[in-house]
Design a protein around this nucleic acid. Structure first.
Lengths: 182, 182
DNA sequence: GTCTATAATTTGATAGAC
DNA sequence: GTCTATCAAATTATAGAC
């Protein structure tokens, strides 16, 4: 694994817990046993690191999601994959969605990073909407898809905040029924 | 208005946009034309300010909500008041819910502030559940209420992030139908 | 209550040696 | 690529005058 990847891993761990502004080059460098000046060699400005991190998160999220959804034949099965991606953030990583946290503090982000976060949500809504429409996007599906994404984000935040993982399932199962039928 | 109240107002404006950690005593003091040392006279530590701010937000949120819901006779009408409280944060204040933002970055908050944020969500869930149960709380109502709160929080975050206020209505109207019946 | 002044720490970032 | 050394700025917080 390259030093850049190690830095991105360290940044993801920290930013998914405490956000963009609380994470310093010194902390990240210490995490992987280098000095902060070395970290700046790989990412000259913090904005460069933030941008690469959100791009990597975005790409990995949908690659993993598409692979899982490819094994499902029903709309409900595919959308359940989307829900499980958020559940995995909670259960496996005990962390927020990177874009859910950065999205909350979007007014404090560099413009380029903020734009990338918006891109993640746009892609998320379109992904869910495309499942609903079976390949033919429609405005109504977009609204339903956005509501589903919002519920996943809010449920993840609340479950982490309340330290109650079971609450995530309780909060999201009806949303799945609503969007995919009982 | 007292200086403490002015400081809390300034802190609320800033923290509902960028979170807890980006807000400094110097910024708040400058907002109300005093010096940061004077701000420390009113709130010795930042944690004191954060704690008072969340407590004030909590109290005001439910006072306003109760007043609005008292004018409604139906369950749906009362829960619609809850939705409108979030809509007002978006449309009137163009800001996140204070606790939605602080909840996202809860791992970076002083313990006392984090506890107070959790208290806001506990009270929110109980408020919605009590409407569902007409005064007789039940576990099933608690899960439905939590899901509704999650959707409001996620929808507010997404609408602000995507700079699309209309999206909030589109995302939340079905959640209201789901919980209160069509 | 507010001020000036300042301490102690942390931060993003750079210069230059190896 | 990584290091030491350093900078300029910002941060939380305190001491003491008025």
């Amino acid at each position: 694994m390259t030093t850049s990847e190690k830095l991105l891993d360290a940044a993801e761990l920290r930013m998914r817990r405490t956000g963009y502004n609380t994470v310093s080059f010194r902390d990240l460098a210490a995490d992987i046993n280098i000095k902060s000046a070395s970290a700046h060699y790989h990412f000259p400005r913090k904005e460069d690191l933030g941008l690469d991190l959100v791009k990597r998160y975005h790409a990995r999220f949908f690659t993993t999601l598409d692979a899982a959804a490819a094994g499902e034949n029903t709309r409900r099965g595919k959308i359940e994959c989307f829900r499980l991606a958020y559940r995995s953030a909670l259960v496996d990583d005990r962390s927020m969605c990177l874009c859910g946290l950065l999205g909350s503090e979007i007014a404090s982000l560099p413009d380029a990073v903020a734009t990338e976060v918006k891109g993640f949500f746009k892609a998320s809504i379109e992904w869910v909407a495309s499942i609903l429409a079976d390949g033919t996007p429609q405005m109504r599906h977009n609204n339903e898809a956005a509501g589903f994404v919002a519920t996943m984000q809010g449920a993840l935040m609340l479950a982490i905040c309340m330290e109650d993982a079971a609450l995530f399932d309780a909060m999201t199962e009806r949303a799945l029924d609503l969007i995919a039928g009982d």
